[in-house]
């Protein structure tokens, strides 16, 4: 198993902004259209991590024109160009799936740095 981990260690992305569940982040996604490549940001709250090692991924949820949108990004994906930390959240769970059942004001996450 160690041999396997050594093998893929080099393929993981260099560390972007450190973030946790509950944080609001901006993920810069590479989008390939024809032979052109551009960067598309996706900003939302991290509602959970999943997996380990090279298969580790995280889910980002945002409300886009009234509709909840979730995107799952693998940590090591070459499609993720950059991750920016927008706001740190104060949370009590590792998975924020309960946000799916909430809307409007109830679906907000408290800011960690505001007392």
């Amino acid at each position: 198993m160690d041999k396997l981990n050594d093998l893929v260690a080099g393929t993981a992305n260099p560390d972007f902004a450190q973030f946790n569940v509950g944080d609001r982040i901006r993920v810069h996604v590479r989008v390939i259209e024809g032979d052109k490549e551009r960067i598309q940001p996706f900003e939302g709250d991290v509602i959970g991590f999943k997996g380990s090692g090279v298969n580790r991924s995280f889910t980002v949820r945002k409300i886009s024109s009234g509709v909840g949108v979730e995107r799952i990004f693998p940590m090591a994906s070459p499609k993720v160009a950059k991750i920016e930390l927008v706001k740190q959240g104060k949370i009590r769970r590792a998975k924020l799936y309960y946000l799916r059942n909430l809307s409007g004001k109830a679906a907000r996450i408290k800011d960690k740095n505001v007392r």
Binding site: K3, L4, L7, R30, V54, P74, A76
Partner: peptide, 11 residues
């Protein structure tokens, strides 16, 4: 040795 995943350049 075992199975793992790698990424192609297009992700």
């Amino acid at each position: 040795i075992g199975m793992t995943s790698i990424y192609s350049p297009d992700g």
